[in-house]
Amino acid sequence: MEQARTETVSGGANIKWFAGLALATFAWIAAYANLAPFADGMVRLLSVDPQTHFGEAMRFFFYDTPKVLLLLTGVVFVMGVIHTYISAERTRDLLSGKRLGLGNTMAAGLGIVTPFCSCSAVPLFIGFLQAGVPLGVTFSFLISAPMVNEVALALLFGMFGWKVAGLYLTMGLSVAIVSGLVIGKLGLEHQLEDWVRAIESRGAAATAEDPLAWPERIQAGIAHVKEIVGKVWPYILAGIALGAGIHGYVPEDFMAGIMGKSAWWSVPAAVLIGVPMYSNAAGVIPVVQALLAKGAALGTVLAFMMSVIALSAPEIIILRKVLKPQLIAVFVGTVSVGILLVGYAFNLLL
């Protein structure tokens, strides 16, 4: 009798959580469907002439801000639920003992579904090395995790369609896999800092985990939204504000001349500009959208985006605690070449 009562209470709790999730999903869809009327209404409310540069910038801001936040919230929630099935320990165990090639492909694929930016992926990078994951395989994960993550893909799909998102996914994974293979073949394990090499390789002890109920998984998704969106929203607002300024005030001929297909040097220049910067996909994609609207070439802009989120200056500073300068130089050089090839390929294909 007591067990039946417990199951009834549990079933009622499940129904409440699923009903709440259904209501939130309906509200999300309704909000996303009314982005344009909302932006137009805000411009009118502020008594701004939409035909002026300022009016165009304001409409861009009021349209893109809720759009990016809605996309980010939806994707992060779904991935937060998925992450209840995937832990850092399981990821590490999957890659332990894998050879180059298969291991690089698995590591790059896992990078897509793990919630790490370029800086937060570094501690896991160290854990992989401690667990005996080959250096080249570990680098494939380190490159893929920030560059080809679910947020970047979702925002690219929402703003530019499946073709651009699919090409970015394919080429981003290629950069991660090939770069990891190259670094692995060079045999640069001696370029790890001594304290990392001195740590004994050991596998993580298997721990028994109780399966979570669906209300707990939904709560984990909500917590994931609070954590991730809570961290990145200032970057989003800053990126959209910059994008709005570019959209409203920068002449089309100016951006087309600097970042257009005709300028062969535009792709390496974009990479050089992007490396010292630090942002994430949510913050930089609105800038990408504004640059494209002003006539910049897609490959050039995406090369800029990749360099910002995959080769950030803070990441390189943190890596210096783990890697000697020669290995850092090989890492930056290999990934930079891959990004350059992606930029030129996009400009040729699209």
Rank of each mutant, 00 (worst) to 15 (best):
S140R: 13
G161N: 01
I143G: 13
H190S: 15
F157N: 00
W214P: 07
R217K: 15
I222G: 11
A204N: 10
G187A: 02
L173Y: 10
K231M: 14
Q191A: 06
N149A: 03
S118W: 00
E193Q: 15
V182S: 07
S144I: 03
G172E: 09
V229M: 12
A206R: 15
G221Y: 07
I199S: 11
L153T: 00
V182P: 03
G221D: 09
L167P: 05
V122H: 06
L142Q: 04
A121T: 13
N149E: 02
S118G: 11
Q191K: 08
V164Q: 11
V178I: 15
S140Q: 05
P123S: 02
A206G: 12
V196F: 04
E227A: 09
F157E: 00
W214V: 13
I199H: 12
L124Q: 08
L186Q: 08
A198W: 02
A198Y: 02
A220G: 09
V182C: 02
F128E: 04
L181E: 07
S140H: 10
Q219P: 04
G187N: 05
D194R: 07
F157K: 04
H224L: 00
L156M: 14
W233A: 01
R197H: 03
G230M: 08
N149V: 09
Q191H: 04
V178P: 06
V225P: 06
G221F: 04
Q130C: 01
M171H: 02
L186K: 13
S174L: 15
V175C: 09
P115A: 11
I177S: 02
G180T: 07
P115C: 07
F128Q: 12
T207H: 10
D194I: 03
I218M: 13
R197I: 04
V232Q: 01
G136T: 10
G158H: 03
R217Q: 14
K163T: 14
L186N: 04
G132H: 11
V196L: 10
F116C: 10
L124Y: 04
L181Q: 07
